[in-house]
Design a protein around this nucleic acid. Structure first.
Lengths: 146, 146
DNA sequence: TTATAATCAGATTTTATTATCTGATTAAAG
DNA sequence: CTTTAATCAGATAATAAAATCTGATTATAA
């Protein structure tokens, strides 16, 4: 199977986009995120905990607790979330798995893949939560009415 | 961890590129491929078996046996190998893991990711083994002298 | 101050991927 | 014909990723 982001990362991206789209002043608990996005509750809890450690979101314990964005949505880029969960290996490692792949000793796909990869990197760096809010709202609403 | 191709697929691509670069009339056995490319012998054997079933390479049993390309290198595209090993899920599934992602009900990244993904698809469709032969040879030679 | 509802922490389970093992089958060469 | 060197087939083992479980801690509200 060919994967781009791990399940953890997909779920993390979904959840943070959800937080941004909901635009609540109060925090949102993992039960809501789990049920709205169809992600196992215990699993998304773990992921949100790790994103809290990374400083992208913040958590509030106890009754009425939950999660909220730690910064302004315009300051959270998708690459920050990907980097926190999956790391940056995808942008550094050889796509063919060859050892010592570098401009000096390139793999057969080095240049072509490198170009595609930096486009992907740029996209993830350019896209911030605020820019995606409307689209996320529409998608959530659609999922909700299924 | 963010993955593009599975290890199986990376190894499969390497091995088939190797077969094309060696340009032998005789077949090449899995021992050679394993040692030159640093891939566990039993593992690459399995992968080569499955590529044989897919019709991309052919195998010869018994003494002096091994593997060779089943068609002209110009007729084998990278996408054929990827598709045989990892399948095409990467090109069909939502990058964020949202359900029912489609032009009608797009995820927040649908258009932007779609564009990047079709560039990747086009690249893998355009690149055939013959086009990559020289670059593969250089890379193999470098690995060999390490 | 007690009940409740949430995160947090750590262990465990399940499933998929990666890797290895054993032996059967096949074909060439002596 | 026998030895040798290879693929092939199926089972097993090891590792990693995904998901779940248990209980502790924390904070709000009644």
């Amino acid at each position: 199977m060919t994967v781009i982001f791990s399940k953890k990362c997909e779920y993390g991206l979904q959840a943070v986009l959800y937080l941004a789209a909901r635009n609540e002043t109060d925090s949102i608990n993992s039960e809501e995120i789990s049920s709205k996005l169809n992600i196992p509750k215990e699993f998304i809890s773990k992921i949100l905990q790790s994103l809290t450690e990374s400083g992208l979101i913040s958590s509030k314990k106890g009754k009425n607790g939950g999660f909220s964005l730690a910064k302004d949505p315009s300051k959270i880029r998708l690459i920050d979330i990907v980097s926190a969960i999956d790391g940056m290996d995808m942008f550094n490692n050889c796509v063919l798995g060859f050892p010592h792949c570098s401009p000096d000793h390139p793999c057969p796909l080095h240049e072509k893949w490198g170009a595609l990869r930096s486009n992907a990197y740029n996209m993830l760096t350019d896209e911030t939560l605020d820019k995606l809010k409307e689209k996320t709202l529409r998608k959530i609403e659609f999922i909700d009415n299924k």
